[in-house]
Design a binder for these strands. Structure first.
Lengths: 351, 351
DNA sequence: TTGTAAGCGTTATCAT
DNA sequence: ATGATAACGCTTACAA
């Protein structure tokens, strides 16, 4: 335990503008003026003050400054994510950072390690006057406490919707993207299209399944429940499920992986099967390098970050319009795995 | 009479503890006690206050709180990096975050986009009372302004040394790592070992070259300047340089890539040449997946982050020992590209 | 157990 | 052009 509070100059810690004022023999207000570059200071006085500042190694305490400032602004925007290491996170952050910087904001990123309690704590910490606004990629925790506090910095959700909470958000078009993928397969004469995905309780999975349904319905193709495998949560499970779909009496001729794990499982199951088409939802690191290169429907993650930041900056600027939900279109990236045509397969015998 | 500036509740913005005190009909001190979980509050009073807090959506202004607190602490540690997107950054951040969290700190990451001015601004912003300490992965800019200010949060540099600045730092053993790699090749009977690297003005490149020299000297192998190619700054240049080394009258039988770019160039040049060994400095995404898998000497980037955080936390805790420079050993990861033995090659004729 | 007043480091108001 | 003083939202002495 140190014993600070002695007087004199800056014994207990950093020098304050009072120390500077004393050193320069002016008032604190004059120091403040110099600090803020106000014009109404005689050049000689200003230089004198600046010298004192340099001599003492003074640095302004921003927290104290913001406390009194009329137009409070930290020039900081926060981003809370589940995992800093995932490549998508970095890209989203870059998009948000870019837009923020164009408007004079720096981006602060914090990762919750996908821990709900930490996520909530991080959000609270950020909003308690530390940033002007916050972008959150929710990890599935209960964020309803946000609904209660009208005060605090504005929050925009990105990439995922916050559970049961009406709030500004920017997400990819899950349903449309899945529909696009399935239509692509249908156009290549596939009628037996398998769906592989994670737990249906995940909003994104449910939406992607909806897109699958819609595409089949629009093409008047019956949805065979035997071709649908939900609740897959690792690559191994996805591989088993995909292999099973290919072993059905009336097997799948194409597979749609609703997330990267499912897609990789599907690819493994279809390895060596030149007659099976595979399309995945979400681009991934090696998608273009595998054999065959993988056709995917991809979210534009950087655009997600950019758009979220734009929306957030508007809110920070005082935009009071009702809650906005922005949906960003996905892009189908044709590579090779999804271009295989059905028809010549051995599985279209009688009738 | 409460009603300070304007009456009613929270006209100018967020509610303050005065608004809460008025709402609960207690003093601000009592609200403060509840906020800080002090025991000496009657349960009924506490509940009353908590209700008022909930009703008003009050959230404590941490900046103001810290302003007065004796034991100032933001519970925040900052990390300034050049590029959020690079995989190394994420790993380093994760290491630092992990250690920080064990001690009750959250990690805030900001990226400068490798812009010197932004980097300096970020460092200033962070240290101006926003975090308790700061880890910086310097991008090569002039950080000497840090030497002047003894005040402000402590700073630890990670992965790279700050130019001409005596400061706490944690870096990988560049020279030792390179020596290790070259010794590994020497042990496999290589005597003509090419060195490929970036500009020698980079501290890390210079150090790795020193390790190369040391290994050769220790083995009493002459250093042939024709085998050294520095200043390579892209893969294409590295490929050309590596190809040239393999075409010398007395060609290289092994190549050491001092950074990932150089390593990839070396690999391309050696493609199909089963007699040429390649070792790279730094592990990379696909190193294990290429053909042949690439042997590397790798920094333990997560340990870099962890160690930097540990050192920083000690400084935050009041550790006043002299400047520390911690060097972390590298690890040689044998895969295949570096295991080829020299001797049987056609390039060892007379003497 | 609760309240009053001072003070943290800065900026804002209003003089001078 | 410069300064005295109140105020920002909160915590901490010190009472009561």
């Amino acid at each position: 335990m140190p014993a600070p509070t002695t007087n004199g100059v800056a014994v207990g810690g950093r020098p304050t503008i009072r120390d500077v004022a004393a050193e320069a023999a002016v008032s604190t207000k004059t120091v403040s003026r110099v600090l803020n570059g106000e014009p109404s200071v005689r050049p000689a006085t200003a230089r004198n003050v600046r010298d004192a500042i340099a001599r003492l190694g003074f640095e302004r305490n921003e927290a104290a400054a913001n406390l009194r400032r009329r137009r409070k602004s930290t020039s900081l925007v926060g981003l809370v994510v589940g995992d800093l290491g995932s490549p998508g996170t970095a890209v989203l952050a870059r998009g948000a950072e870019q837009v923020g910087r164009e408007h004079g904001y720096y981006l602060l990123v914090a990762s919750s390690g996908s821990d709900a309690a930490i996520e909530a704590e991080l959000i609270r910490t950020f909003r308690a006057g530390r940033v002007d606004g916050l972008i959150v990629v929710p990890t599935g925790s209960d964020l309803s406490f946000l609904a209660e506090s009208t005060a605090g910095a504005p929050v925009v959700f990105a990439d995922r919707l916050p559970g049961n909470l009406r709030a500004d958000s920017v997400v990819a078009a899950d349903a449309d993207g899945a529909r696009q993928a399935v239509e692509y397969l249908l156009a290549r004469h596939h009628r037996r299209i398998g769906f592989l995905g994670g737990p249906a309780s995940l909003f994104s999975v449910a939406q992607r399944y909806r897109g699958y349904e819609q595409a089949l319905a629009a093409a008047a193709v019956d949805l065979d429940p035997a071709l649908v495998r939900l609740g897959l949560d690792d690559t191994a499970g996805a591989l088993d499920a995909a292999a099973a779909l290919l072993r059905l009496p009336d097997p799948a001729t194409a597979l749609f992986g609703a997330d990267t794990g499912a897609t990789i499982g599907a690819l493994r199951a279809a390895a060596g099967r030149s007659d099976v088409a595979v399309i995945g939802f979400d681009d991934f690191q090696m998608a273009g390098l595998l054999d065959p290169p993988v056709t995917v429907v991809a979210r534009d993650v950087e655009a997600l970050g950019r758009t979220a930041a734009e929306l957030l900056l508007r809110r920070i600027g005082g935009d009071r319009r009702p809650v906005q939900r922005i949906t960003l279109d996905t892009v189908l990236i044709p590579r090779a795995s999804g271009e295989k045509t059905a028809g010549r397969s051995p599985a279209t015998p009688d009738q």
